[in-house]
Design a protein around this nucleic acid. Structure first.
Lengths: 367, 367
DNA sequence: TTGAAAGCGTTACCAT
DNA sequence: ATGGTAACGCTTTCAA
């Protein structure tokens, strides 16, 4: 009766995104049919579907993922909490993770956490968006938070971290074995005054690497390494290096908690202390990130292979979403000690695999 | 009447997240009241609110952002499309952007685009989630896509890119002025055989930097620079460097399209060609990312200040969300030519500002 | 200040 | 194979 705005034309003029109802009306079918046409496994007759897709295209219709999420109770959103994005490892992970998840129909909601402030307020947001799962990359998850996620039924996966406090899934590299292997490598290279630069001290990653390193050393009659803390930051590592390198008994080899810190330490050693690497000081890192291979650094490093780690992560997360009650998985991706020029070489054990030089000592007992 | 599952206990036992109805029931109020209690500006009596928050806490209630989005038609999600995450510039941007948006109550949905494949399928996903705005960091947006976003009413902002094809908002650095300033700087430093390594050739960023550079050169009687294309990747830049440096008339200075490529070029120059930087070859980059300041590179570079750029971005995006019909903004964040040791120095014009050495020639005409 | 009721745009379940 | 209808969990009128 009111002629001002009515009829199909008005719909078309409306600048709000088209809905399934609009499409249904135009195609002359029910809204349910439209829904089915956009649902992969649903049963729709050939020409019904064609009418619908034609109408949808005409209206620029796209199913509203928000509305879908509400009813299906699946947002197909994965919360990813990352810190330390300036550490090259994480951009590499993020890139791969995003690609793999997208292939599975999931998307990333990105949260960056200051390492200093608690993850709590951030978690509040995560929960409100009803993410289907949460991947914590390098953030300490308080056990309280883990409990809260569990209560909310949100699967949690720790990436590059573990925790004893809660029974939660995790994907890590071979931190302990890597640390031990590096100790053996440096010892075989003739070094005697070892140093270690820790990352964030209460992180499992740093603790495990250190435990592997010092464990091997003490088991083989070495003095405990000189030690400083770099907190996984470049500035922290630079300070740690200044500390270590100005001690009377200067280390002749330093195991740096990760490559990011190793680079900062190398800079300080060379440019502030005038040391030659590896003649005066051997340096070994962890992660084997891109910059480790740059000629300026040529860093020997224990690898954490991004692709396998991400693949494990995605697989685990999807399984957890499928069945949240299944037991948590704690997975470890095997790495290699990739040998480059930043540390003096042992007499034997260096072989070339897939174009990379790696150290595989005959000595067993380094599993 | 059916006694099996009913009453408050049953609700409590349910492991689905609590809803506003659950809270209302427990607090003895209406569901609307619960909604108001969680809406900043709403009118709720003091003790009503207290009853509600108590009940909410007891049940672990959190408002469902998905449901809220559906009715408010605002997802408070910002789509961010990023490529080249291995270029340090982008992680820095992402980190800052995430923090700033979160402070405004928005969240990032992250999409990583292979630079090779089109952004189209990705855009489909973006639209389905009804993001409130789209930030394209370093991706070429086809004008067709821009049109589609406009049709869907999604504000788009190009970060570190512009386009003539469509009338869309953008935030960039001073690409043209930077390129010109670098030309003047190198000329003043006594260089005569200039080289340029382009990024992605059809990107506005690379084109503007090159235009500024070659424009200044030709205006001042210099031959056009030797030219190669690096596509903003390290591998591409390394190849470009090999090309340029093995030419008979080897350049004595190269303007590298960004720092990421500059580092690769420096590696090749030093380690493959045995050149000293800057004695044999001067190198200048663009962006002034973190690694530029590392002693090993000590790269002279025109800065693109992340914080101002991100702040402009957030401000613009919020304004566009508020009023999508306002005219697009094309903003430019001023940079400086940060002088370090990778290029021979001009006799004058270098001053120290905020502890950084920058070049500010007396010569006007470099606006 | 509060509660009832009408959506928001889907999917899911029933009939047909 | 198709259409009608009831959710999903919230915000937003509108009355009271």
């Amino acid at each position: 009766m009111d002629g001002r705005v009515s009829g199909p034309a008005a719909r078309t003029l409306s600048n709000r995104p088209a809905t399934a109802v609009d499409v249904a009306r135009l195609a002359g079918v029910s809204q349910s049919a439209v829904s089915r046409a956009f649902t992969p496994g649903a049963s729709v007759a050939r020409d019904t579907r064609e009418k619908i897709t034609a109408a949808a295209r005409a209206l620029g219709y796209r199913p509203n993922a928000i509305a879908r999420s509400l009813i299906t109770r699946r947002s197909r959103l994965i919360g990813v909490v990352a810190a330390y994005l300036q550490n090259h490892f994480y951009p590499e992970v993020l890139e791969r993770l995003s690609a793999r998840l997208r292939a599975e129909g999931y998307h990333i909601m990105l949260f960056t956490a200051d390492s200093r402030d608690a993850a709590d307020p951030l978690l509040e947001d995560v929960m409100r968006y009803r993410v289907d799962a949460l991947i914590l990359a390098s953030t300490t998850l308080s056990s309280a938070l883990a409990a809260e996620c569990a209560a909310a039924g949100i699967p949690v996966l720790l990436f590059n971290r573990t925790t004893e406090a809660a029974d939660v899934s995790s994907v890590t590299g071979e931190n302990r074995r890597g640390g031990a292997l590096i100790a053996a490598f440096l010892a075989a290279g003739g070094h005697r005054r070892m140093g270690f630069v820790a990352g964030v001290e209460n992180s499992s990653t740093s603790r495990d690497r250190e435990a592997g390193f010092t464990g091997w050393l003490s088991a083989h009659g070495f003095a405990p390494p000189a030690r400083a803390v770099g907190n996984y930051t470049m500035d922290g590592a630079a300070s740690a290096a200044r500390d270590l390198l100005s001690r009377p008994e200067r280390p002749d080899a330093i195991f740096c908690g990760n490559d990011h810190m190793a680079i900062a330490i190398m800079e300080v050693a060379r440019h502030e202390f005038g040391l030659r690497v590896p003649e005066d000081l051997s340096l070994v890192g962890f992660d084997d990130v891109g910059p480790a291979a740059w000629r300026s650094f040529d860093l020997t490093s224990f690898s954490q292979p991004v692709e396998p780690m991400v693949d494990m992560t995605v697989e685990t997360v999807l399984a957890l979403i499928e069945d949240p009650d299944q037991p948590p998985r704690r997975l470890t991706a095997p790495g290699e000690l990739v040998v480059r020029g930043s540390a003096r070489l042992p007499a034997s054990g260096i072989i070339t695999v897939d174009g990379r030089r790696v150290w595989r000592p005959n000595d067993k007992g380094l599993t």
